[in-house]
Simulated assay, not measured.
Amino acid sequence: MKKFKESAFWKSPAKVSIILFVVLEIITFYLQPNVLTMSWISLKAESAITLLFAAVGETFVLLVGGIDLSIAGVISITSSVAAVYMQDSWISVILVSILCLCIGIGVGLFNGFIIQRFRIQPFIVTFATWYICGGIAYLVLPRDGGDVPQKFVSVLTHRFGGKFSVAMLIIIVCLILWTWFKKTRLGISLYAVGNNAHAASLNGINVKKVNYFAYAASGIFAAMCGLYRVAVTATGSPTAGESFFNQAISATVIGGTLLTGGIGGQYGTIIGVLAFKAINDLLVFAGASSYWSTLFQGALLIAAVLVSTISEIRNERKELVE
C-alpha cells in the first residue's frame, strides 16, 4: 500500500482525471456493452477535438500562472473570418487558415505584451481582449451563417478507412508533441516560471519571453478550435467561443493543472476533456435530462480542485518534514 501511494501515478496531477475517465467509461460500457467500436471512438474524438484545442492552449497559460479568457473571442473571430472569407479553392482555404492562425498568435502576443509591460492582471487584460475580438467578430459576421467550402470540411472531418478520424490523429500527435516539448528548455521554463517567476529569472530564464510564448500558444490553439468548429458545423458564428472558455478552464483544472501555475500538463488536460465529454455520453445512455450535464460538470470541477489542493498541501507538508 505504501509503495502504491508513493508511485508515479499517485503523485501525478492527472490522477483525478484518469480515475474519473476510467470510471465513467466503465459505467458507459456497462449501460451500452456494444458501444466500443472504432467508429464510436472516432465520433467521440470528433466531438471532443474543439474543446481539446481550447483546453490545450489554456494549459500553457495556466502553467505560467496566468489565465486567458480571450480564447472565447479568438474562437469567435476566427470562426467568423473563416466562414465569410474562405472560398472554394485550395489557395483560399490555405491562406484564410493561415490568416486565422495569425490572428490567434497576434491576440496572444498582444495579451502577453500588455500583461508583461504594464503589469496588469491577466484576468482583466484577457477579459477586455475577449470583448474586442467579440465585437470584431460581429462586424465580420453579424449572425450565424457563412459559406464554408466543402474542401475544408472534408479534410478535417475525413476518416481513414472509414473509421479512423482526423480528430483521433490530432489527439495522438498532441500527446507525442507534448512528450517531446515538456523536456525541452522552453517546456522546463514554463514550469519554472509558474512555480516562481522571480527565482526563474535569477536562474537565467527570460520570464517575459516565456509568458509571450504561453499566450501566443493559447491564441493559436484557440484559432485552431475556431477553424475546426467551422469545419464540423459547416457554418460560422460570432458567438462561437462563448461556450468554450469556461469549459476549457474546467477541463484543464480537472486534468490536474493548478490555477496557481507550475503544476499540470497536457496529458491530464486531454484526459480531462475526454472525461468532460464522457459525462454527456453517460447521461444520454442513462436516459437523464441534458440539463444535468452542467450540474455534474460543476460538481466534478469543485471535487477536482479540492482533491488537487489537498494533494498539494500534503506534498508541501511532506517536504517540510523531510
Rank of each mutant, 00 (worst) to 15 (best):
T179N: 13
W180I: 15
F181P: 10
F181M: 10
K182T: 14
L186S: 09
G187C: 02
S189K: 10
Y191Q: 05
A192T: 03
V193H: 02
V193C: 05
G194L: 06
N195K: 06
N195W: 00
A197Q: 10
H198D: 08
A199F: 03
A200N: 11
A200V: 05
A200Q: 08
N203R: 07
I205N: 10
N206M: 08
V207E: 02
K209Y: 11
V210M: 02
V210L: 05
N211Q: 14
N211H: 12
F213Y: 12
F213R: 07
G219A: 14
G219I: 11
I220W: 11
F221C: 11
A222Q: 00
M224I: 02
M224W: 04
C225E: 05
C225T: 03
G226F: 10
G226I: 07
Y228C: 05
R229V: 09
V230S: 10
A231I: 03
A234I: 14
T235E: 05
G236F: 02
G236Q: 09
G236I: 02
A240C: 01
A240K: 03
S243P: 04
S243Q: 15
S243W: 10
F244M: 13
A248D: 13
A248N: 14
I249H: 07
S250R: 02
A251G: 13
A251E: 13
V253D: 00
G255L: 04
G255V: 08
T257L: 12
L258C: 07
L258D: 07
T269H: 01
G272F: 00
A275P: 01
A278Q: 14
I279A: 13
I279R: 06
N280Y: 13
L283T: 08
V284R: 13
S290W: 00
S290R: 00
W292K: 02
W292N: 08
W292L: 10
T294R: 04
A299F: 04
A299Y: 00
A304H: 12
V307S: 09
V307T: 12
S308C: 00
